[in-house]
Design a binder for these strands. Structure first.
Lengths: 186, 186
DNA sequence: TTGAAATTTCTCTAAATACAGAAACAAATG
DNA sequence: CATTTGTTTCTGTATTTAGAGAAATTTCAA
Protein backbone atom coordinates (compact mmCIF):
# COMPACT_ATOMS: atom_id res chain seq x y z
CA UNK A 1 0.00 0.00 0.00
CA UNK A 2 3.06 2.22 -0.15
CA UNK A 3 3.03 5.22 -2.45
CA UNK A 4 6.77 5.18 -2.97
CA UNK A 5 7.85 4.21 -6.45
CA UNK A 6 10.79 2.22 -7.62
CA UNK A 7 13.91 3.91 -6.37
CA UNK A 8 15.48 3.86 -9.80
CA UNK A 9 12.56 5.75 -11.27
CA UNK A 10 13.26 8.72 -13.48
CA UNK A 11 11.43 11.98 -13.81
CA UNK A 12 11.50 11.65 -17.60
CA UNK A 13 9.59 8.40 -17.24
CA UNK A 14 7.15 9.98 -14.81
CA UNK A 15 6.63 12.88 -17.16
CA UNK A 16 6.06 10.57 -20.08
CA UNK A 17 3.36 8.66 -18.20
CA UNK A 18 1.61 11.89 -17.30
CA UNK A 19 1.74 13.30 -20.82
CA UNK A 20 0.72 10.05 -22.43
CA UNK A 21 -2.20 9.69 -20.08
CA UNK A 22 -3.27 13.18 -20.91
CA UNK A 23 -3.00 12.54 -24.63
CA UNK A 24 -5.17 9.48 -24.32
CA UNK A 25 -8.26 11.65 -24.49
CA UNK A 26 -7.23 12.87 -27.96
CA UNK A 27 -6.73 9.30 -29.07
CA UNK A 28 -10.00 8.03 -27.69
CA UNK A 29 -8.85 6.15 -24.62
CA UNK A 30 -9.21 7.31 -21.04
CA UNK A 31 -6.41 8.50 -18.83
CA UNK A 32 -6.06 5.31 -16.79
CA UNK A 33 -5.72 3.17 -19.88
CA UNK A 34 -3.20 5.48 -21.49
CA UNK A 35 -1.15 5.84 -18.30
CA UNK A 36 -1.01 2.11 -17.77
CA UNK A 37 0.07 1.63 -21.34
CA UNK A 38 2.79 4.24 -20.93
CA UNK A 39 4.02 2.63 -17.72
CA UNK A 40 4.23 -0.80 -19.29
CA UNK A 41 5.80 0.56 -22.45
CA UNK A 42 8.66 2.01 -20.42
CA UNK A 43 8.90 -0.86 -17.99
CA UNK A 44 11.84 -3.19 -18.47
CA UNK A 45 10.22 -6.02 -16.55
CA UNK A 46 6.67 -7.37 -16.47
CA UNK A 47 4.34 -5.81 -13.91
CA UNK A 48 1.29 -7.19 -12.17
CA UNK A 49 -1.96 -5.37 -11.54
CA UNK A 50 -1.13 -4.66 -7.92
CA UNK A 51 2.15 -2.99 -8.82
CA UNK A 52 0.50 -0.87 -11.47
CA UNK A 53 -2.25 0.16 -9.09
CA UNK A 54 0.25 1.27 -6.46
CA UNK A 55 2.62 2.92 -8.84
CA UNK A 56 -0.01 5.02 -10.57
CA UNK A 57 -2.38 5.45 -7.65
CA UNK A 58 -5.27 3.99 -9.64
CA UNK A 59 -7.89 1.75 -8.02
CA UNK A 60 -7.24 -1.95 -8.38
CA UNK A 61 -10.55 -2.56 -10.14
CA UNK A 62 -9.88 0.22 -12.57
CA UNK A 63 -6.48 -1.29 -13.37
CA UNK A 64 -8.12 -4.62 -14.02
CA UNK A 65 -10.57 -3.15 -16.52
CA UNK A 66 -7.95 -1.02 -18.19
CA UNK A 67 -5.64 -3.99 -18.62
CA UNK A 68 -8.47 -5.86 -20.26
CA UNK A 69 -8.97 -3.01 -22.71
CA UNK A 70 -5.26 -2.87 -23.53
CA UNK A 71 -5.20 -6.61 -24.09
CA UNK A 72 -8.18 -6.09 -26.42
CA UNK A 73 -6.11 -3.66 -28.45
CA UNK A 74 -3.24 -6.14 -28.31
CA UNK A 75 -0.96 -3.41 -27.02
CA UNK A 76 -0.05 -5.49 -24.00
CA UNK A 77 -0.05 -9.20 -23.26
CA UNK A 78 0.08 -11.50 -20.26
CA UNK A 79 3.34 -13.15 -19.39
CA UNK A 80 3.63 -15.96 -16.88
CA UNK A 81 6.27 -15.50 -14.22
CA UNK A 82 7.79 -18.67 -12.76
CA UNK A 83 6.82 -19.16 -9.15
CA UNK A 84 4.29 -16.34 -9.10
CA UNK A 85 0.57 -16.89 -9.34
CA UNK A 86 -0.19 -13.34 -10.30
CA UNK A 87 -0.67 -12.32 -13.88
CA UNK A 88 2.04 -10.09 -15.21
CA UNK A 89 1.87 -7.87 -18.25
CA UNK A 90 4.30 -6.50 -20.77
CA UNK A 91 3.67 -3.98 -23.52
CA UNK A 92 4.52 -4.48 -27.15
CA UNK A 93 7.75 -2.52 -27.38
CA UNK A 94 8.21 -2.63 -31.13
CA UNK A 95 6.64 0.68 -32.02
CA UNK A 96 5.80 -0.37 -35.57
CA UNK A 97 3.98 -3.38 -34.30
CA UNK A 98 2.25 -1.08 -31.86
CA UNK A 99 1.20 1.32 -34.58
CA UNK A 100 -0.17 -1.51 -36.69
CA UNK A 101 -2.24 -2.83 -33.83
CA UNK A 102 -3.69 0.60 -33.22
CA UNK A 103 -4.45 0.87 -36.92
CA UNK A 104 -6.09 -2.54 -36.86
CA UNK A 105 -8.19 -1.57 -33.85
CA UNK A 106 -9.26 1.64 -35.47
CA UNK A 107 -10.24 -0.09 -38.65
CA UNK A 108 -12.45 -2.44 -36.66
CA UNK A 109 -14.00 0.30 -34.57
CA UNK A 110 -14.34 3.04 -37.17
CA UNK A 111 -14.34 1.70 -40.70
CA UNK A 112 -16.18 -1.58 -40.32
CA UNK A 113 -19.25 -0.22 -38.52
CA UNK A 114 -19.39 2.73 -40.91
CA UNK A 115 -19.42 0.31 -43.82
CA UNK A 116 -22.21 -1.68 -42.25
CA UNK A 117 -24.23 1.47 -41.69
CA UNK A 118 -23.86 2.81 -45.19
CA UNK A 119 -24.62 -0.52 -46.77
CA UNK A 120 -27.87 -0.66 -44.89
CA UNK A 121 -28.76 2.85 -45.98
CA UNK A 122 -27.97 2.03 -49.58
CA UNK A 123 -30.21 -1.02 -49.44
CA UNK A 124 -33.02 1.26 -48.40
CA UNK A 125 -32.05 3.85 -50.98
CA UNK A 126 -32.16 1.37 -53.85
CA UNK A 127 -35.85 0.69 -53.29
CA UNK A 128 -36.71 4.37 -53.12
CA UNK A 129 -37.44 5.53 -56.63
CA UNK A 130 -38.22 9.07 -55.52
CA UNK A 131 -34.69 9.54 -54.18
CA UNK A 132 -32.65 12.22 -55.88
CA UNK A 133 -29.98 10.38 -57.92
CA UNK A 134 -27.38 12.89 -56.78
CA UNK A 135 -27.93 11.78 -53.18
CA UNK A 136 -27.67 8.15 -54.17
CA UNK A 137 -24.39 8.92 -55.91
CA UNK A 138 -22.97 10.59 -52.83
CA UNK A 139 -23.84 7.63 -50.67
CA UNK A 140 -22.25 5.29 -53.16
CA UNK A 141 -19.08 7.32 -53.39
CA UNK A 142 -18.80 7.23 -49.63
CA UNK A 143 -19.27 3.49 -49.67
CA UNK A 144 -16.57 3.18 -52.29
CA UNK A 145 -14.18 5.26 -50.20
CA UNK A 146 -14.84 3.16 -47.14
CA UNK A 147 -14.45 -0.10 -49.02
CA UNK A 148 -11.22 1.03 -50.62
CA UNK A 149 -9.85 2.21 -47.31
CA UNK A 150 -10.92 -0.98 -45.59
CA UNK A 151 -9.27 -3.18 -48.15
CA UNK A 152 -6.14 -1.04 -48.16
CA UNK A 153 -5.84 -1.21 -44.39
CA UNK A 154 -6.21 -4.97 -44.53
CA UNK A 155 -3.43 -5.24 -47.09
CA UNK A 156 -1.06 -2.84 -45.39
CA UNK A 157 -1.46 -4.70 -42.11
CA UNK A 158 -0.11 -7.77 -43.85
CA UNK A 159 2.99 -6.05 -45.15
CA UNK A 160 6.17 -6.76 -43.19
CA UNK A 161 7.09 -3.98 -40.80
CA UNK A 162 10.47 -3.38 -42.38
CA UNK A 163 8.92 -2.82 -45.80
CA UNK A 164 6.27 -0.55 -44.41
CA UNK A 165 8.85 1.43 -42.50
CA UNK A 166 10.98 1.83 -45.60
CA UNK A 167 8.01 2.76 -47.72
CA UNK A 168 6.89 5.43 -45.31
CA UNK A 169 10.37 6.83 -45.03
CA UNK A 170 10.49 7.11 -48.81
CA UNK A 171 7.35 9.20 -48.57
CA UNK A 172 6.08 10.71 -51.77
CA UNK A 173 8.97 9.20 -53.70
CA UNK A 174 6.85 6.07 -53.70
CA UNK A 175 4.13 7.90 -55.55
CA UNK A 176 6.45 9.25 -58.23
CA UNK A 177 8.07 5.85 -58.68
CA UNK A 178 4.72 4.47 -59.66
CA UNK A 179 4.73 6.79 -62.67
CA UNK A 180 1.06 7.53 -62.39
CA UNK A 181 -0.57 10.45 -64.10
CA UNK A 182 -2.05 13.52 -62.48
CA UNK A 183 -0.63 16.80 -61.31
CA UNK A 184 0.13 18.01 -57.80
CA UNK A 185 -2.59 19.14 -55.42
CA UNK A 186 -5.63 18.59 -57.58
CA UNK B 1 -40.54 26.19 -35.68
CA UNK B 2 -42.27 23.47 -37.69
CA UNK B 3 -41.02 19.92 -37.31
CA UNK B 4 -42.05 18.90 -40.80
CA UNK B 5 -39.15 18.17 -43.11
CA UNK B 6 -38.75 18.74 -46.80
CA UNK B 7 -41.50 16.89 -48.59
CA UNK B 8 -39.02 15.27 -50.95
CA UNK B 9 -37.14 13.78 -48.03
CA UNK B 10 -36.26 10.13 -48.15
CA UNK B 11 -36.11 7.59 -45.39
CA UNK B 12 -32.71 6.41 -46.62
CA UNK B 13 -31.42 9.91 -46.07
CA UNK B 14 -33.02 10.07 -42.63
CA UNK B 15 -31.50 6.74 -41.74
CA UNK B 16 -28.09 7.85 -42.92
CA UNK B 17 -28.20 10.95 -40.73
CA UNK B 18 -29.15 8.87 -37.71
CA UNK B 19 -26.46 6.26 -38.28
CA UNK B 20 -23.80 8.81 -39.06
CA UNK B 21 -24.65 10.76 -35.94
CA UNK B 22 -24.39 7.63 -33.91
CA UNK B 23 -21.04 6.73 -35.42
CA UNK B 24 -19.68 10.14 -34.57
CA UNK B 25 -18.88 8.94 -31.07
CA UNK B 26 -16.56 6.28 -32.49
CA UNK B 27 -14.84 8.90 -34.59
CA UNK B 28 -14.43 11.38 -31.79
CA UNK B 29 -17.10 13.93 -32.65
CA UNK B 30 -20.42 14.35 -30.92
CA UNK B 31 -23.79 13.40 -32.32
CA UNK B 32 -24.89 16.90 -33.26
CA UNK B 33 -21.75 17.56 -35.24
CA UNK B 34 -21.92 14.24 -37.04
CA UNK B 35 -25.61 14.60 -37.83
CA UNK B 36 -25.18 18.08 -39.22
CA UNK B 37 -22.32 16.87 -41.34
CA UNK B 38 -24.43 14.01 -42.65
CA UNK B 39 -27.32 16.34 -43.44
CA UNK B 40 -25.12 18.73 -45.36
CA UNK B 41 -23.30 15.93 -47.11
CA UNK B 42 -26.58 14.67 -48.52
CA UNK B 43 -28.06 18.07 -49.13
CA UNK B 44 -28.20 19.21 -52.74
CA UNK B 45 -28.50 22.87 -51.83
CA UNK B 46 -26.84 25.03 -49.17
CA UNK B 47 -28.59 25.21 -45.81
CA UNK B 48 -28.59 27.87 -43.14
CA UNK B 49 -28.36 27.30 -39.41
CA UNK B 50 -32.05 27.83 -38.88
CA UNK B 51 -32.99 25.18 -41.41
CA UNK B 52 -30.56 22.72 -39.89
CA UNK B 53 -31.85 23.40 -36.42
CA UNK B 54 -35.44 22.77 -37.47
CA UNK B 55 -34.69 19.78 -39.61
CA UNK B 56 -32.68 17.93 -36.98
CA UNK B 57 -34.45 19.28 -33.91
CA UNK B 58 -31.19 20.56 -32.47
CA UNK B 59 -31.00 23.83 -30.53
CA UNK B 60 -29.99 26.82 -32.59
CA UNK B 61 -26.98 27.57 -30.40
CA UNK B 62 -25.81 24.01 -30.63
CA UNK B 63 -26.04 24.17 -34.41
CA UNK B 64 -23.96 27.31 -34.40
CA UNK B 65 -21.17 25.70 -32.39
CA UNK B 66 -21.28 22.49 -34.37
CA UNK B 67 -21.03 24.38 -37.64
CA UNK B 68 -17.98 26.15 -36.30
CA UNK B 69 -16.36 22.83 -35.48
CA UNK B 70 -17.12 21.43 -38.92
CA UNK B 71 -15.67 24.53 -40.54
CA UNK B 72 -12.60 23.96 -38.36
CA UNK B 73 -12.26 20.49 -39.84
CA UNK B 74 -12.84 22.02 -43.28
CA UNK B 75 -15.58 19.49 -43.90
CA UNK B 76 -18.07 22.25 -44.65
CA UNK B 77 -17.76 25.82 -45.81
CA UNK B 78 -19.85 28.96 -45.93
CA UNK B 79 -21.47 29.93 -49.17
CA UNK B 80 -23.06 33.30 -49.74
CA UNK B 81 -26.58 33.23 -51.16
CA UNK B 82 -27.61 36.23 -53.24
CA UNK B 83 -30.29 38.26 -51.55
CA UNK B 84 -30.07 36.40 -48.27
CA UNK B 85 -28.22 37.74 -45.28
CA UNK B 86 -28.03 34.43 -43.52
CA UNK B 87 -24.96 32.29 -43.78
CA UNK B 88 -25.44 29.12 -45.71
CA UNK B 89 -23.27 26.03 -45.60
CA UNK B 90 -22.36 23.24 -47.95
CA UNK B 91 -20.34 20.12 -47.24
CA UNK B 92 -17.34 18.97 -49.17
CA UNK B 93 -18.91 16.31 -51.36
CA UNK B 94 -15.74 14.87 -52.85
CA UNK B 95 -15.22 11.99 -50.47
CA UNK B 96 -11.49 11.79 -51.13
CA UNK B 97 -11.11 15.42 -50.30
CA UNK B 98 -13.19 14.76 -47.21
CA UNK B 99 -11.00 11.86 -46.13
CA UNK B 100 -7.88 13.94 -46.59
CA UNK B 101 -9.24 16.74 -44.46
CA UNK B 102 -10.11 14.30 -41.71
CA UNK B 103 -6.62 12.85 -41.96
CA UNK B 104 -5.15 16.34 -41.79
CA UNK B 105 -7.25 17.17 -38.72
CA UNK B 106 -6.24 13.98 -37.00
CA UNK B 107 -2.60 14.56 -37.68
CA UNK B 108 -2.87 17.98 -36.07
CA UNK B 109 -4.83 16.74 -33.08
CA UNK B 110 -3.12 13.41 -32.46
CA UNK B 111 0.34 13.27 -33.94
CA UNK B 112 1.58 16.81 -33.46
CA UNK B 113 0.82 17.09 -29.72
CA UNK B 114 2.22 13.60 -29.14
CA UNK B 115 5.42 14.65 -30.85
CA UNK B 116 5.64 17.75 -28.70
CA UNK B 117 5.12 15.69 -25.57
CA UNK B 118 7.71 13.07 -26.36
CA UNK B 119 10.27 15.65 -27.40
CA UNK B 120 9.91 17.33 -24.06
CA UNK B 121 10.31 14.03 -22.25
CA UNK B 122 13.40 13.21 -24.25
CA UNK B 123 14.93 16.55 -23.40
CA UNK B 124 14.51 15.66 -19.77
CA UNK B 125 15.75 12.13 -20.35
CA UNK B 126 18.97 13.29 -22.00
CA UNK B 127 20.11 15.06 -18.85
CA UNK B 128 19.33 12.10 -16.64
CA UNK B 129 22.43 9.93 -16.54
CA UNK B 130 20.80 7.40 -14.21
CA UNK B 131 18.15 6.57 -16.77
CA UNK B 132 18.16 3.01 -18.05
CA UNK B 133 19.39 3.18 -21.67
CA UNK B 134 16.72 0.71 -22.69
CA UNK B 135 14.05 3.18 -21.61
CA UNK B 136 15.76 5.97 -23.51
CA UNK B 137 15.80 3.77 -26.58
CA UNK B 138 12.11 3.07 -26.35
CA UNK B 139 11.30 6.74 -26.09
CA UNK B 140 13.49 7.48 -29.08
CA UNK B 141 11.93 4.74 -31.18
CA UNK B 142 8.53 6.17 -30.41
CA UNK B 143 9.71 9.60 -31.41
CA UNK B 144 11.05 8.18 -34.65
CA UNK B 145 7.73 6.50 -35.39
CA UNK B 146 5.82 9.69 -34.75
CA UNK B 147 8.20 11.77 -36.85
CA UNK B 148 8.05 9.32 -39.72
CA UNK B 149 4.28 9.16 -39.56
CA UNK B 150 4.01 12.91 -39.34
CA UNK B 151 6.20 13.46 -42.35
CA UNK B 152 4.43 10.74 -44.31
CA UNK B 153 1.02 12.25 -43.58
CA UNK B 154 2.29 15.61 -44.73
CA UNK B 155 3.53 14.16 -47.99
CA UNK B 156 0.48 12.06 -48.70
CA UNK B 157 -1.77 15.06 -48.15
CA UNK B 158 0.06 16.78 -50.99
CA UNK B 159 -0.47 13.94 -53.44
CA UNK B 160 -3.25 14.49 -55.98
CA UNK B 161 -6.43 12.66 -55.08
CA UNK B 162 -6.51 10.65 -58.28
CA UNK B 163 -3.04 9.26 -57.63
CA UNK B 164 -3.83 8.47 -54.06
CA UNK B 165 -7.03 6.75 -55.05
CA UNK B 166 -5.23 4.68 -57.65
CA UNK B 167 -2.44 3.80 -55.28
CA UNK B 168 -4.83 2.63 -52.61
CA UNK B 169 -6.81 0.61 -55.09
CA UNK B 170 -3.58 -1.09 -56.13
CA UNK B 171 -3.12 -2.06 -52.52
CA UNK B 172 -0.20 -4.30 -51.71
CA UNK B 173 0.76 -4.42 -55.37
CA UNK B 174 2.41 -1.09 -54.68
CA UNK B 175 4.61 -2.70 -52.09
CA UNK B 176 5.74 -5.50 -54.38
CA UNK B 177 6.40 -3.07 -57.22
CA UNK B 178 8.90 -1.32 -55.04
CA UNK B 179 10.96 -4.52 -54.97
CA UNK B 180 11.94 -4.11 -51.36
CA UNK B 181 13.37 -6.92 -49.33
CA UNK B 182 11.77 -8.67 -46.40
CA UNK B 183 9.32 -11.52 -46.09
CA UNK B 184 5.59 -11.44 -45.36
CA UNK B 185 4.24 -10.91 -41.86
CA UNK B 186 7.43 -10.37 -39.96
C1' DT C 1 -28.80 55.57 -35.81
C1' DT C 2 -32.41 52.72 -34.67
C1' DG C 3 -34.77 48.53 -35.27
C1' DA C 4 -35.03 43.95 -37.08
C1' DA C 5 -32.61 39.81 -38.21
C1' DA C 6 -28.93 36.73 -37.38
C1' DT C 7 -25.28 34.85 -34.73
C1' DT C 8 -22.56 33.93 -30.76
C1' DT C 9 -21.67 33.54 -25.94
C1' DC C 10 -23.26 32.40 -21.43
C1' DT C 11 -25.53 29.66 -17.99
C1' DC C 12 -27.79 25.89 -16.34
C1' DT C 13 -29.41 21.02 -16.64
C1' DA C 14 -29.12 16.40 -18.33
C1' DA C 15 -26.59 12.63 -19.79
C1' DA C 16 -22.56 9.98 -20.24
C1' DT C 17 -18.28 8.50 -18.65
C1' DA C 18 -14.58 7.65 -15.36
C1' DC C 19 -13.30 5.72 -11.39
C1' DA C 20 -13.06 4.39 -6.35
C1' DG C 21 -14.32 0.99 -2.95
C1' DA C 22 -16.92 -2.94 -1.64
C1' DA C 23 -18.60 -7.26 -2.50
C1' DA C 24 -18.55 -11.45 -4.92
C1' DC C 25 -16.12 -14.83 -7.20
C1' DA C 26 -12.23 -18.01 -8.57
C1' DA C 27 -8.08 -20.44 -8.04
C1' DA C 28 -4.39 -22.51 -5.76
C1' DT C 29 -1.90 -24.07 -1.64
C1' DG C 30 -1.25 -26.25 2.64
C1' DC D 1 -11.63 -28.31 2.38
C1' DA D 2 -10.68 -24.07 4.48
C1' DT D 3 -7.72 -20.25 4.04
C1' DT D 4 -5.05 -17.26 1.52
C1' DT D 5 -4.28 -14.74 -2.65
C1' DG D 6 -5.72 -12.81 -6.72
C1' DT D 7 -9.32 -11.12 -10.07
C1' DT D 8 -13.72 -9.47 -11.63
C1' DT D 9 -18.22 -7.49 -11.16
C1' DC D 10 -21.23 -4.36 -8.92
C1' DT D 11 -22.69 0.01 -7.00
C1' DG D 12 -22.42 4.63 -5.94
C1' DT D 13 -20.13 9.16 -6.61
C1' DA D 14 -17.59 12.60 -9.05
C1' DT D 15 -16.13 14.58 -13.16
C1' DT D 16 -16.71 15.66 -17.73
C1' DT D 17 -19.22 16.55 -21.79
C1' DA D 18 -23.43 17.50 -24.49
C1' DG D 19 -26.82 20.36 -25.41
C1' DA D 20 -31.09 23.50 -24.47
C1' DG D 21 -32.64 28.18 -23.77
C1' DA D 22 -31.77 32.88 -22.58
C1' DA D 23 -29.08 36.85 -22.94
C1' DA D 24 -25.84 39.58 -25.28
C1' DT D 25 -23.68 40.97 -29.33
C1' DT D 26 -23.13 41.84 -34.07
C1' DT D 27 -24.74 43.00 -38.72
C1' DC D 28 -27.24 45.15 -41.99
C1' DA D 29 -30.99 47.87 -43.91
C1' DA D 30 -33.85 51.69 -43.95
Amino acid sequence: MTEINDITDSSAKRQFILYWGDMGSQWGVNRSVAQIHALLFLSVKPLNAEQISEDLGIARSNVSNSLKELVGWKLIRRVPIAGDRREHFVAEVDVWEMAMRIAQGRKEREIDPALAAISECLEQAEVEPALNPEILDRMKSLQDLLQTTDKWYGQMLGVPKAKLNMMMKMGDKVVSLLKLTGKKSE
